[in-house]
């Protein structure tokens, strides 16, 4: 039914939506807009901010089986508002979209769920914290979390334990996205230890690893001339972590931003230009799956390479999301997300 296509046309303000980022540049009529120097209030801010147009709870994890096979895992809940406010019943203006994926070196399993807000099928509450769509759920108190997802060909059930503090990107959680000043609220918990079981067509696999949970919300996060992005979350073997993104612009220029995180949670934000990301090689679909990533201020000059080049999210609005290895000045693992390549 074509309603889905329409829904997606409307959901363009969601992240990871490869096309029509113009939607992100439009006026945020009636919606709240992120302001500098934010004051976060937890656990309330773990919940939904219905007065902002878009928001997500975005978890990626690098996993390893007992035999050393690397796996990637994704659990994402997007919220997109047709109008500000929570609302009730079928007329509630909140729409929800869930994406779940498991990436193996040879396969990439993807599932998608769509739901209306207001009837209890999907939503996020802050206290107790619960984010869900259908039977997919992320629950707990952010020190420990329980996460599930299921689809016709795969499922997982994972337990997460925080090993460090929350990280606030940009200026204390106010993350600038363009020279014109578009911004979002953006914080992460990148220090989760994760373990659990993946149910795959090839059998059940017990896995352990690290997970990274991003929280971001805004109403107009991109400038009109920005068409997509490349986002890196890298965990180095020395315990440091780095988040970096590069926004592609129609004028051929890029806008970059990065956050450096020490193992004890000390952060250093970097503004436009400090981070340089250069595509080195593409897969069969012209998506760059090898990158050179440089952050000279921290002596970083690494090659980021996909573990499975075909980690294409064949969801209603497709994008690339998958685990990567890091080599060069620093060794490690991480996750790469690329939009705007369809």
């Amino acid at each position: 039914m074509n309603v889905k296509a329409l829904f997606l046309a409307l959901c363009l303000p969601m992240p990871a939506l490869a096309q029509g980022f113009a939607g992100l540049g439009t006026e945020a009529e009636g919606f709240s807009v992120p302001q500098p120097e934010p004051q976060f209030n937890f656990p309330t801010d773990h919940g939904a901010h219905n007065d902002y147009r878009i928001e997500w709870w975005y978890l990626t994890a690098n996993l390893e089986a007992a035999d050393g096979t690397p796996y990637g895992l994704q659990w994402t809940l997007f919220r997109s508002a047709l109008a500000p406010g929570a609302g009730d019943g079928w007329t509630a203006p909140q729409l929800w979209m869930g994406h779940a994926a498991v990436t193996t070196p040879d396969n990439h399993y993807v599932a998608e769920r769509l739901a209306r807000g207001g009837i209890g099928q999907a939503g996020v509450t802050a206290d107790p914290f619960e984010a869900w769509i259908d039977d997919w759920a992320l629950t707990g108190d952010w020190n420990t979390l329980h996460m599930t997802a299921s689809a016709a060909d795969f499922a997982y059930d994972m337990a997460l334990t925080a090993q460090g503090p929350l990280i606030f990107h940009g200026e204390g959680g106010y993350s600038v996205k363009s020279a014109a000043g578009q911004a979002s609220y953006y914080y992460s918990q990148p220090f989760f230890a994760i373990e659990g079981t993946l149910q795959l067509p090839e059998g059940d696999v017990a896995v352990t690893g690290n997970a990274w949970l991003d929280r971001e919300w805004s109403s107009q996060p991109l400038a009109e001339n920005q068409t997509g992005w490349d986002w890196f979350s890298l965990s180095f073997d020395d315990g440091n972590k780095m988040m970096g993104f590069r926004l592609q612009q129609t004028d051929g220029q890029n806008f970059t931003s990065a956050t450096w995180m020490t193992p004890d949670g000390q952060t250093t934000p970097y503004t436009d230009g400090a981070l340089v990301a250069t595509p080195l090689a593409t897969n069969d679909s012209d998506v760059p799956v090898r990158w050179r990533v440089e952050l000279p201020a921290q002596g970083v000059d690494v090659t980021v390479a996909a573990i499975n080049e075909n980690a294409w999210m064949a969801t209603s609005v497709p994008y690339w999301e998958g685990p990567v290895t890091v080599t060069g000045s620093h060794e490690g693992i991480g996750y790469l997300e690329m939009t705007g390549y369809e």
Binding site: N2, V3, L6, F7, A9, L10, L82, A83, P93
Partner: peptide, 11 residues
């Protein structure tokens, strides 16, 4: 069809 007002359709 295209041009359908989804906001109106849904809410």
């Amino acid at each position: 069809q295209e041009g359908t007002d989804l906001t109106s359709f849904l809410t």
